[in-house]
Structures are given as C-alpha cells and as structure tokens.
Design a protein around this nucleic acid. Sequence first.
RNA 1: GCUCCCGUAGCUCAGGUGGACAGAGCAUCUGCCUUCUAAGCAGAGGGUCGCAGGUUCGAGUCCUGCCGGGAGUGCCA
Length: 566
Amino acid sequence: MGRCPCRIYRGKSTPYGGQGLTHMKNYLSERISAAIAKAGLPPADGPVPFEKPRSPEHGDLSTTIALLLSRRARMAPRKIAEAIVAALEVGEDYIAGYEVAGPGFINFRYSHAYLGRTLLAVLDEGEHFGRTDVHKGKRVNVEWVSANPTGPLHAGHGRQVCLGATLSAMLEWTGWDVTREYYFNNAGNQMTALGLSVRARYLEKIGFRIEESEIQYVGGYIGEIAEEIFKEFGNAKKDAAIDFFRLRGEQWCFASIKRTLDALGVHHDVFFNEDSLYKDGSIEEVIREFRERGLAYDKDGAVWFRATAFGADKDRVLVKATGEPTYRLPDIAYHRKKILRGYDKIIDIFGADHIATFPDVIAGVSALGLPADRIDVIIHQMVSFVDGGEAVRMSKRAGNVYYLDDLIRDVGADAVRYFFIMRSANSHLEFDIRLAREQSENNPVYYLQYAHARIASILRFAQSEGMSLEAAPDVSLLRRPEEIALMKTILEFPETVLFCADSYEVHHLCTYLQALAAQFHKFYHECRVVTDDKRLSHARLALCLATKQVLANGLRLLGINAPERM
RNA sequence: GCUCCCGUAGCUCAGGUGGACAGAGCAUCUGCCUUCUAAGCAGAGGGUCGCAGGUUCGAGUCCUGCCGGGAGUGCCA
C-alpha cells in the first residue's frame, strides 16, 4: 500500500520514546528511592526491582523492594511498604494508582497519559521502535554456522543458521556493532576426504573402476561436482593431483552453502578461512608460545597441550604424530586472532555435538594470557524432524540426507526462520514439517502474519472510506479494556528485544509476538475501527498503525516477511 | 564412569532470572461471519511442575541425591 501513513508523525518526537517501559522504571525507581530516604529507611543496596505481575489484578508493575529491605530495616515488609507508600510522590502523567498488597508488594497502575504518550512514540519512531543504544560503542563478533565445506547444509544446520541470524539482529538493535562471521574449515583431513571422493566419482564417470572405500562422502552432490569437472575438462583431469579435486569440491560446497543461507536471508560479513592461519604463520606462533610458557610438550611423536593445568581430565594433542595439527590448534589460533582483532565480546554458536571442543579452546586462549572471558558460547540442542506423527529418518551412510534446501522447499523460508527459534536453544527441538507446511490457523507463523495483513486491510478500507490521518489522533479516547491491554503489550517490545539480546535467548520474542497478535485480534473483535465517530476511528487507526509497526519490526528481527495481504 | 542439556496439561512447549491463585498452541467439545480479512474471537474440560530431601518469609525457578531421555567424552571435525 505504498508509503506507511505513520510517516506523518515524524518530527514530532516526544522525550519518552524508544524505551517506554525502561523510562517508566527509571522514573519509579527514582521516586521510590526518594520515598525510602524520606521515610528514614535504609537505602536499597541495588537497583529497585520491578516485575510484571502475572495477574492483572496486581497492577501493571510491581516492586518487591519492601520485602528485600525488611531484614536490614528489621521491620515487617508490609510495614515498610506502607511507610514507602506514605512518603511516595508520583505524577499522574505516569501513574494512575498504587497500593500495598500481599506480604509487602507495591503495585502500580499506569496512567492513561503514559500509555498514550508511548503509543505516539511508537508511531514517531516507526521502524526504529524497539531499538535501544544500551550497548552503543561496543563491538561483538558472532560466529555461527561454520559447517565444514564438505557438502550442502543439512536440515539440522537450520537451527544454528536461524539462531545466529536472529541473535545478531537483536544485538544490533541494542546498540552493538556486530560482525557476522563464518569460520570456514577449509583445512584439515576432511577436505582431503572430500577431494578423494570427488576424484573417485570423476574417475568412475570416465570409465575407471574405483574402490568404494575411497568414497567417504556418499551424497549425490559429489556426483554433481564430478559431472561439472567432466563437462569442463572431459578426460583431461584423470591424472590431476588430489588438490585439484579438493579445491573444486570446496568451491562447490561454498557456493551451495551461500546459496542456502541467502534463501533464508542470512548473511555473513566475514568468511574466515582456516587455511589462512597456516599461511600467515599463526599456527606456528601459537605452538611456539605454548612451548615458551611451558604448556606444550612432546610425547609419542605428538605435541601435547597441558590442558590438565586448566582443569581438564587429561592433556590434549595439538599436533599429531603425522605432523598435522588437530582441529584444536587452528581453533585456538583463530580465537586468539579474534581477540586480537579487538572485540569486546565474542560469541560462538554451535550444536550440542560439539560440546566437548570449546573447553579446550577456552583453556588454550587463557594459556596464551588472553582474556578468554570475552568469549561466550551458545550451545543449542539437537533437532529432530517429524512429519505429522512420523519421524523423518535420515542416514548419512545411505546418502538420504534431508538438506536445508529440502526443508526450505517443503515449508518455505518464513516457517523455517520461525520454527527454528521458537523454542529455547537449551531444549531439544522437534520440528514438525507438516505443521510448518500447513497454511492454516494451526501454524504460528501465519497467526502473526495474518495479524499484520489484517491491519493492512483495515488501513486500506479506512483510506477507501476517505479517512485522513493528517491530524494528530486523540489517543485519550482509547479507554476500552482491549485497547488498554493492546497499548500495554506494545510498550513492552523494546524491553523484550533487550532481554532477548542480553540473555541470548531469542525465542522470547516469538512468545511476545504471539501475545501481541492475540491482543490485537481481541481488540479487532471487540472494537470496530472505522465508524461514523471520526475522532474515535482516528484514534483506533493510530493504535492499529502502532501494532502493525511493532509486528513488522518483530518479524523483521526474525527475518520473516510481514505481508500486506494474505 | 565423567561433562553438558532436558523432564511442566493427551501432544509440542512458554514460564523475564526466587514472588502473590501454574500459562500458550495443537488435539477434544460448545458457541460467534448481511458491517474493516473466521488464517479470527469467546467458552469448557484437562496439572501431586519426574521423585525425595534442603535453603528461604516465599521454590516450577536455587542446592544435594536418585530416576528417566538426549548430546558428548579421539593423535575425526
């Protein structure tokens, strides 16, 4: 529908924007501290805690400060709460009422003026609503996917792909300067195995007999790579060195992985090549430094890292007797390099199947005297796929792998992005392909998108009725319970994003958006937007616009389309 | 054996970091479209939060021990 009508509110910025709820908490915190001092109570030793009560009867925001103070003040918490309340002065432009409840909670109810201001702030900030600058000036490196370039991404990789992309976006929204990075494992013996597999298929194609044992990677894509080589060179490469096939394989896999990531709208700023660590001498440097610090020694022809000095159960091999490094050495060199590149925070995301590798890396980085505490590791549990009730079986050995491309083709990119992050990363994920594919009310993705499209439809209708949005709406007319509840939900968005980013638990945004959409549908059902009452219609349109904006911003963070029609 | 994750409604899962009567979706059942999208809304049933202790004014949330499921525990990555 062309440009968003909310643009008309630009330039009328209120001082309450962006962090509506945070602003409220800061305000109340300051008022309560003043009341505590006035009442002659001992000051709180931390920030005043707030929480959103589960039950609406307990108000909009609640503090347990009186319960926390009771020990030091040696008074019953309820008495303390009453003393605070007696000394408390808050403005009606923020708070409509408050009372002491239960064992000593102080419950606050927002004033309508506050809700109205926040609503206008949403329209004012538009696609920026939800962004904060809490982490402004800090740099973070997020490394994820980092699948070996020995084949296309399989469906299980999707979890990591989507987690990292969403987390990166959220970090950016809270002020971080984010570098999105992919550690490209193009060294090591898995690449040799790839080269051997490709060569075998190629030789087979041009008529040679091959040993099946040479083929470690059995997927059909190996044949495709061989076919490409054959088309380009015919028989001419029958005596080519293994490096040739290895490189062709790597290039093919890299292109495949990038194409898949692209289909999900996922991008990296840096593809860091593992082999560059060999070329620039980093590997050698790390070994030398380990030796200098007395943390590496030779045994059985291998070079060992004294990991037991850092709490490990046994020492680890850095360089095999064959002279090749184990994966740990380049991993340590890589993380050392990331720290030296000057990040305040380094986040690694990987699956539970790699859980044993990171303690060695952390220990290695510490051993080099570097601040390993800058590294945060997010481990997500495994994924299983079910189609309806049936488990999707896949076996690498039989070569019938369910690839991420297959999944995208089966359920669409939006459902993939949503389903992979809707659950906590700590929980095993069951991905129901049938549900994800279903274009119905059962599918949580459509529920969100439907709410957005429905609002767009209302706006189209309003415009066709000649409604104008030129004047500022009188949001004080929004007094229905459904309208109030919707406004309250909207103002929680920035804190939700911040909470997700700080906790690295992005699934909370899904829970939030579901609640927002539900709140909107209730409002829609109870309150007709476009009516003869022009002023009320105008105010409700503003509420619709704000809801639409938050839905769009949330979906954008998730990398999901926000359709104007469905 | 040891390390990490999980155990909440028939199923899949939330539960903002210790708060006030435990939530959502699906599934089952019942209502609601001549008015802005019914891919929606309203309502019903369904729980000893794996078990047993402990800390606390207060525990689904923290601690310990069991039981059950998953992922690891390589001179593979």
